Computed example of a mutant assay.
Amino acid sequence: MRTMLPAALALLAAAVPATAFAATPIAGRYVTEDGAGVITVGPCGSLTCGKLTTILKKRPGAPDTDVNNSDASLRTRSVLGMPILSEFQDAGKDWRGKIYDPRNGKTYKSIVAKNADGTLAVKGCIAFFCKSQTWRPAK
């Protein structure tokens, strides 16, 4: 009987598939922490991305194009519709990809997670130094 128990457990374990952990979906519309714009997050092919879809507060003198981009060919693209979040993939407990800051033209590694209250915790990182923001759902 003792030798049958391990064999039975092995058969049972083989019959039950392992469950993978998935991050809470982040698709939706979010107002940035400073209230300046709305980012719409959703699928981009097999990945997830977010674009600036509404400008709520335009800074005085702020350009309408991506003038700070290090790629000269992108400096004339409109800020409205610009990809802010790109290449995001489900990493289990959160989403990981890149975030673009049009104010300085730089792209950073990013970690995004949806909070229980529906807000989005957004981090932009250089090495292990991260700056965090909370984006709230847009109405």
Score class of each variant (00 low, 15 high):
1 M>T: 08
1 M>A: 11
4 M>Y: 14
5 L>S: 03
5 L>V: 14
5 L>E: 07
7 A>E: 12
8 A>K: 05
8 A>C: 13
8 A>W: 12
9 L>Y: 14
11 L>Q: 12
11 L>D: 07
12 L>Y: 11
15 A>Y: 09
17 P>K: 04
18 A>Y: 03
18 A>R: 10
19 T>W: 10
20 A>V: 11
20 A>C: 05
21 F>A: 15
25 P>R: 10
25 P>V: 09
25 P>M: 04
26 I>A: 01
26 I>K: 04
28 G>C: 06
30 Y>C: 02
32 T>V: 13
32 T>F: 11
34 D>S: 03
36 A>D: 11
36 A>S: 15
36 A>V: 01
37 G>S: 15
40 T>Q: 11
40 T>I: 05
45 G>I: 04
53 T>Y: 11
55 I>S: 00
58 K>V: 03
58 K>H: 13
58 K>T: 13
59 R>I: 07
60 P>N: 10
62 A>P: 00
66 D>C: 00
69 N>I: 06
71 D>K: 12
73 S>M: 04
73 S>Q: 03
73 S>H: 00
74 L>I: 02
75 R>G: 01
75 R>C: 01
76 T>N: 15
76 T>S: 15
78 S>I: 05
85 L>A: 09
86 S>N: 09
89 Q>W: 00
93 K>M: 09
95 W>V: 02
98 K>C: 04
99 I>R: 07
103 R>A: 10
104 N>F: 02
106 K>V: 08
107 T>H: 06
108 Y>I: 06
110 S>L: 03
111 I>C: 01
111 I>P: 00
115 N>I: 01
117 D>E: 06
119 T>D: 11
123 K>M: 10
124 G>E: 02
125 C>V: 08
128 F>V: 11
130 C>Q: 05
130 C>K: 01
130 C>G: 09
130 C>D: 09
132 S>M: 04
133 Q>E: 10
134 T>R: 15
136 R>A: 14
136 R>F: 00
139 K>I: 03
